[in-house]
Write a protein that binds this DNA or RNA. Structure first.
Length: 156
DNA sequence: CCCTAGCGGTGCT
DNA sequence: AGCACCGCTAGGG
């Protein structure tokens, strides 16, 4: 797993790559992320990731993503994460709605737990999932980020 | 607003 | 197998 920095106007994110593709994306941390040597394989992936992150932070649609390595998730988590990717820009969903869309209609709470385990926030847009009472719900990266991202997308 | 009961996946023992 | 978490939800004060 090699990790590489992504400088943005909102801080420096950190992307981690396995041999299969992008495996994790981390929000800017107070202490600088440790960077690692760029391998030839990850270089084109990192270019796509960087552009995608900058696009999201600018409220633009993401054109293309690198291959995502979601193999660390359980089957249920992978279903949730793939469902999150179908939420269009400028739209939001709810935990219950996601649960129904993957045919686990009573698993809204488990959906929230799966969202909190999302290894690639921003690009797997868990920030577009709100609670049913149209409250904000939670966010593993901190609720400030969730509101900021939704404002950028004009979805709040 | 608050409280309560019910829900299901996950990770730890 | 049991059990305590949770980014939940619907229903009722």
């Amino acid at each position: 797993m090699t990790s590489l920095p992504i400088p943005t106007p909102h801080g420096t994110f950190c992307a981690c790559y396995s041999s299969r593709g992008l495996a994790q994306l981390h929000f800017p941390a107070p202490a600088p992320h440790t960077s690692q040597p760029q391998s030839r394989e990850t270089q084109p992936w990192h270019q796509l990731t960087t552009r995608a992150v900058l696009d999201v932070l600018a409220g633009r649609p993401v054109k293309k993503l690198p291959p995502l390595d979601l193999s660390q998730g359980t089957p249920f988590q992978q279903k949730v994460w793939n469902a999150l990717r179908l939420i269009p820009l400028h739209q939001t969903s709810s935990y219950g709605e996601i649960a129904r869309s993957i045919h686990h209609p009573n698993s809204s709470r488990a959906v929230g737990q799966a969202c909190s385990a999302n290894p690639i926030p921003l690009l797997i847009p868990c920030h577009r999932v709100l609670a049913a009472n149209r409250k904000l719900g939670g966010f593993s990266g901190g609720l400030d980020w969730k509101t900021k991202l939704l404002q950028i997308e004009h979805a709040l």
